[in-house]
Simulated assay, not measured.
Amino acid sequence: MTDIAFPAARPRNSFFRRNRLVIMPLLFIAPAFGMFSLFVIYPIAQSIALSFIEWQGIGPKKWIGFQNYIMLFNDPVFWKSLVNNIYWLVLFLLAPVIGLFVALYLNQKVFGIRLIKSLFFFPFVVSQVVVGLVFTWFYDPAFGLIATILKPLGLQLPSILASEDWATFGVITAGLWPQTAYCMILYLTGLNSVNPEMVEAARLDGAKGWNLLVKIVLPQLRAATFIAIVVTVIGALRSFDLVAIMTEGGPYNSSNVLAFYMYDNAIFRYRVGYAAAIATILFLIMDIYIVWFLMRLLKNEKGTR
């Protein structure tokens, strides 16, 4: 009888089998990570690199090191824009508070509440451009809605968007309208998950009004509150649309913000390197907040385990 040679059996303890729990997730993540690297990480790195050169958008590039940042920190318009961003950040935090109370009001079973909900939801689906145009008309001292209401009372509305003292706050007020609607939606969703048995038990124990809200309802809305604050802070830091529509940073750069100042330098002043330096500073500010947000998120996840 002739010996029949059989192929050697593949070793079961192969490299892939030993590391499949690591390799398989990486294979699934690789396409998304490739797209993220191409469209997010590479542009960020390119923008940071541009902040160290002098370039008009066309022609040769000139390496100038940290000169853009030195000019930036000596630029009064940059500091004014940064201060305005802080105003946006502080005043925008009113949106979660107002959104919470609006959601509490709308979370009732009364006649016509769906119509009222749709009216409060309306600002969220409207474009920022439309919001800016509507509020520009509101603030018009001659033909605007507010001026029309005040005229019979013998009061005259100042030109808010033409005032260096009030232009920023007028734009922020316009931004609060859709942002409050978004926070309201988050809280309405969160109120649907509030345990009614806990609320009834607290009422039987004599809790009502403010005590019921603070001690029973708000702890169950912690996730909605966290998301509302995160989205609101990011929205305040990247504010651009309303400034561009309503004031274009004026009058005399009094309502400028970092995002619009970056856009103005890159598109109209042909200072691409300088604009990239502004973008890098804004990126670092947002990075600090994102790191804090991720640390809080990980801490909360560990606490719930």
Rank of each mutant, 00 (worst) to 15 (best):
T2L: 14
D3L: 15
A5I: 13
P7V: 09
R17W: 07
R17D: 06
N19D: 01
V22S: 02
V22T: 08
M24I: 14
P25Y: 08
I29L: 15
P31E: 08
A32H: 05
A32K: 01
G34T: 15
S37G: 11
F39E: 03
A45D: 06
L50C: 03
L50V: 01
I58C: 02
K61P: 01
K62H: 15
W63K: 07
G65M: 04
F66A: 13
Y69L: 09
Y69T: 03
L72R: 05
N74S: 14
P76Y: 05
N84W: 12
P96N: 09
P96S: 10
I98C: 07
G112Y: 03
L115S: 15
I116V: 13
F122S: 13
F122I: 09
P123S: 04
P123A: 03
F124C: 02
V130Q: 08
L133V: 10
F135E: 13
F138T: 01
Y139H: 00
Y139G: 00
G144E: 01
A147E: 01
T148D: 02
I149N: 04
K151N: 11
G154Q: 01
Q156L: 05
S159K: 10
I160S: 00
S163K: 00
W166K: 07
A181C: 12
Y182L: 15
I185T: 13
L191I: 02
E197P: 05
A202R: 07
A202Y: 03
D205G: 12
K208R: 14
N211V: 04
L212H: 05
L212A: 07
I216W: 08
P219A: 11
Q220S: 02
L221C: 09
R222N: 12
F240N: 06
L242S: 09
I245E: 09
T247N: 02
G249T: 03
G250I: 10
N253S: 11
N256T: 14
V257D: 01
R269L: 07
A277K: 00
I278K: 06
D287L: 12
I288R: 08
L297T: 12
L298V: 06
K302D: 11
R305A: 13
